[in-house]
Design a protein around this nucleic acid. Structure first.
Lengths: 143, 143
DNA sequence: TATTGTTATACTCTATAACTATA
DNA sequence: TATAGTTATAGAGTATAACAATA
């Protein structure tokens, strides 16, 4: 049993260190596709909610709308996603995956899942589920 | 029981969202002292290991040595920490807390602990300990 | 007038190479 | 020549105000 320092008593400090490690693993895995984690996340959200508005996509990505612009531009240039102007409100755009985006997303998800498992390899399946449940509790709490 | 999306199966995604929330809470708590989380972390590490070299401090903070320079400059200007030139190797500096830094650190640690608890309020004490243990497993794993 | 998306801008964080002074 | 710390620089990430087109 190790003496516990102040820092080791903070969930935030442990979260930062674990997040850094898992994130860096994912960055490495996605590098061969020239994609960043946020870009994969965007693709996955668009797949789940095709046609969602940009403002809503930004909100779910926890980024501000201006940050979404270059991200979506890149996905459009790569032919993975597209903005489609809404008929009823011509200011707004619905965001969709292209056929190519749909096709690429499947191996990307497998790659990300593999990376996530590898980066959390010290955990048993049961511990991994516990961890997901605990993190979800923090994330979904009000305020 | 909710249907689980691809993203919700990733520890990395849950980590990022939880870390963001806890971090932002701490940023808000430290703002009144005009300090950033990394600066408090540095103070805590220096307290635990007075006189440690800058390269070692950077390594423990998981930042590159060049990033440590403005951070330490700020702590020195604020009179909280100081670089002391090593006698045996005049290239190196040991880093120490000043008396003022020692004095300020105690209420800062209480503030950070309070913020950490508040940001993880949905967890019971037992769940919080479980979470810390699971995160520590990821963090301390080799490679 | 208000809203969607965009541009412009700035500030922080991160990463790398090159410099200095010592060794 | 190698190393500790620093400087310079560039790239991401983040945040805010202001603008264009549309409502």
């Amino acid at each position: 049993m190790s003496a516990h320092s102040f820092l080791d008593s903070l969930v935030g400090y442990a979260l930062r260190r674990a997040q850094l490690k898992v994130f860096q693993h994912l960055v490495g895995s996605l590098a061969e596709h020239d994609l960043r984690p946020a870009e994969l996340t965007a693709l996955a959200i668009i797949q789940d909610e095709p046609g969602l508005m940009q403002a809503e996509l930004a909100r779910q990505l926890a980024i501000d709308p201006p940050q979404l612009v270059p991200l979506l531009n890149k996905l459009e240039k790569r032919g993975l996603a597209e903005r489609v102007r809404a008929q009823q409100d011509k200011r707004a755009y619905g965001v969709f995956l292209t056929a190519e985006g749909q096709a690429l997303l499947e191996p990307l998800k497998a790659l990300a899942a593999q990376s996530d498992l590898a980066a959390t390899a010290p955990l048993t399946d049961s511990e991994r589920e516990q961890l997901l449940a605990l993190l979800h509790k923090i994330d979904t709490a009000p305020l």
